[in-house]
Amino acid sequence: MRRLLLLSLAAALPVGAQVRQTYYSHLGERGSKIYYEQRLSAERQRERANQQQALEDARSRHGLSGASAASDPTAPLGLLAGTLSSLAQRFQARAPEPQLTVEQKLAKVRAKAEQGDLEAQTALAWVYANGYRDKNGFQVPKDETQARHWVRRAAEGGDPASQIDLGIQLLFAEDGAGDAVAGAGWIQKAAARGHADAQYLLSILLEAGKGLPKDPIKAAALLRSAAERGSAGAQEALGEHFYFGEGMPRDDRQAQAWFTQAANQGLALAQYNLGAMHLKERGGVEGWEAFKVAMGWFQKAARQGQVDAQYSLGFMHASGVGTEPDLNEAEFWYTQAAEQGDAPSRKALQDIVRLRNR
């Protein structure tokens, strides 16, 4: 049983990865999955969620309010790096004539794609990966074969986002069609074009030796380049390097600066890390003020479903760190984390029940 003490909390909530291969030490999946695959997967899910909202906004702008995707935004093969908004706009802009149906517009997009148009190819890849239906009943069912076909066509044509997508598909395919070397090659192509997220992913592959020989020096250079170009994932990872002194002198100010850049882009992991830094009084302020700042960052991350932040909020409310003790709030946040399979949160909920039954 975890003690409701600040010191135990500080020990239980590391910033990022104390040991990178066991990144989520108190989650059920720790030790059962490779850290690098976890990081890539988390980044893709975050991007897809953002992209789904971008699509809905684009539909409204183009007079398609009421249209909705036929599947959830975490469907495979979602396009990375914020490309969905522009793709959705281009897809709708293909046939602006108001008398055309969505089915007719799709046919025109397909014709363009067959002729080698990259924008049309990437639009079709998204449509088939996610499925589509409009308010009049026209529907395009999900078709992974077609989605893969058009992602590959666009990647071969030089579209960086599609190269990333195809690379990830080949790196982590679960249907026997994976090819780590080929997947890393596609990531390299996108990175060579200066794509920030591709550089970040390539740095992970080089650090892990997945699909490529290990090269920590090149990985570090790519990580910094990606961070400076605005990749939130790279900014968070670079912050970890500074925080733990991995390959560079330990520097809390640099760590905090990079975490903050990523957190301000909405990256939940970076928001959690900033909370943990302040909880350990390594964020430039001390005492109760530091704990209140920590709680603010934990709240931002927890609202996005970051399980460590949800547990942290439950713990802080239960123990009165940074706030007045409130078992109801503690129970709420522990429940959010427990529903994601977090074992310590389930145990904490049992403790709350015992306290109330005394």
Score class of each variant (00 low, 15 high):
G137E: 08
G28D: 08
Q256F: 14
L9A: 12
L171H: 12
T260F: 14
R59F: 10
G157I: 04
P73C: 07
H241G: 00
R39V: 05
A173W: 10
G66E: 03
Q92A: 15
Y243D: 07
A302E: 11
Q89C: 08
W150D: 11
N130A: 13
A190N: 02
S231Y: 03
V353H: 13
V181P: 09
A226N: 05
Y36V: 00
S65W: 02
L40I: 02
P96L: 11
Q89H: 15
L279A: 07
P344I: 03
F259A: 07
P216C: 01
M277N: 10
Q115N: 12
D165Y: 02
G209T: 03
Q52E: 06
S231W: 02
F138Q: 03
Q121T: 07
H278Y: 15
A125R: 01
A154E: 08
A221E: 09
G284N: 12
E156Y: 12
Q18V: 04
S71L: 02
S312D: 15
G131W: 01
S86W: 05
R39P: 00
V307E: 15
V19N: 14
F138M: 06
A11C: 07
A70V: 00
S68V: 05
S225M: 02
A221G: 02
R346Y: 08
Q45F: 02
E324W: 14
V102I: 14
A58F: 00
D117C: 08
E103D: 10
Q306E: 15
E246R: 10
E339A: 12
G320W: 15
V109F: 05
A219P: 01
A226K: 01
G209Q: 06
L349F: 09
A95D: 10
R3N: 12
E174V: 09
Q121C: 12
L79E: 09
R358P: 00
R3C: 05
A88Y: 04
R59E: 03
L279P: 00
A75Y: 14
G233L: 02
Q304E: 14
A155H: 10
Q306I: 00
A192F: 03
R282Y: 09
V15L: 13
K105W: 03
R250W: 04
I168G: 12
A58L: 00
W186A: 05
